[in-house]
C-alpha cells in the first residue's frame, strides 16, 4: 500500500471503525528453520527452533533432507519473515545459491536469510555475497541469533511487502486518530 493511501484508511476509521487487534504491532516474527541437503543431524536446528520460540517467535520446522524447492515453497506458503538454513554436510555452496535463486524467482528477496552449522569462515564472504545476512557458526548464542533477526527482518515484519509496502504503522496511527 502506498503512503498516499494512508489518509483513506484514516477517513475510513472515522466513519467505520476497523476491527483491529490492539496488539497488532506486537505480532510475532515468523521464521522457517530448514535443513537443506542430505546431512542427518538436526540437533542444532532443533535447538535454534526451540530457542527462537522462547524468544517469542513463531518457528516453522520442516525436518531433515529438504530440497531448495521444498524450502522456498514452505517459506512462500507460510509467508515467513526469515529463513534459517542449517547445514553440516558441506554442500552449502551448491544448495545456498539455488535457494537464493528460487527466492528471487518468487519475488521473495525481502525475506531475511541466515545460515548456521558448519561453514568454513573463509567461505563466509562468498555466502554473504549471495544475499545471506549472516552465518552463525558453533558457539553462537540464541540471543545473538534472535537479536539479529529482530534487527534485520523487513520492518513491518510481513504486513507490507512488495505490492502492499509502506504503511502499516501509518494505518494504525490513522485509525487511532479516527477514534
Amino acid at each position: 500500500m502506498s503512503q498516499q493511501s494512508a489518509p483513506t484508511a484514516g477517513d475510513q476509521g472515522q466513519n467505520q471503525p476497523e476491527m483491529v487487534s490492539e496488539n497488532f504491532r506486537e505480532r510475532p516474527i515468523r521464521v522457517l528453520i530448514a535443513k537443506p541437503g542430505l546431512d542427518g543431524h538436526d540437533r542444532g536446528a532443533k535447538v535454534v527452533t526451540r530457542g527462537l520460540r522462547d524468544a517469542g517467535m513463531e518457528v516453522i520446522y520442516t525436518g531433515l533432507h529438504q530440497t531448495p524447492e521444498m524450502i522456498v515453497e514452505a517459506a512462500l506458503q507460510e509467508d515467513v519473515d526469515a529463513i534459517g538454513l542449517s547445514i553440516l554436510s558441506g554442500a552449502h555452496n551448491v544448495l545456498f545459491p539455488r535457494i537464493m535463486k528460487l527466492l528471487k524467482e518468487n519475488q521473495m528477496e525481502d525475506v531475511l536469510v541466515f545460515a548456521g552449522g558448519i561453514i568454513p569462515p573463509e567461505e563466509e564472504p562468498q555466502i554473504r555475497a549471495l544475499g545471506i545476512g549472516a552465518v552463525f557458526g558453533p558457539g553462537t548464542t540464541i540471543e545473538d541469533t534472535a537479536n539479529f533477526i529482530r534487527q534485520n527482518v523487513r520492518p513491518d515484519a510481513g504486513l507490507a511487502s512488495g505490492e502492499t509496502s509502506g504503511g502499516s504503522e501509518t494505518w494504525v496511527d490513522a485509525g487511532d486518530k479516527g477514534q
Binding site: P28, T49, R50, L52, R53, D54, A55, G56, M57, E58, V59, I60, Y61, T62, G63, Q66, E69, M70, E73, A74, Q77, E78
Partner: peptide, 29 residues
C-alpha cells in the same frame, strides 16, 4: 502458542512435505 513467551513451534508441516510441488495444495501453519 507458548503462554510464557508468545512464541510457537509449528511442526505439522513436517508430515505433509510430499505435497510441496503440487500447486493444488496450500498448507499454512
Amino acid at each position: 502458542t507458548s503462554t510464557l513467551t508468545g512464541g510457537a513451534v509449528l511442526g505439522d508441516r513436517i508430515r505433509m512435505l510430499e505435497n510441496y510441488q503440487d500447486a493444488g495444495v496450500f498448507i499454512r501453519s
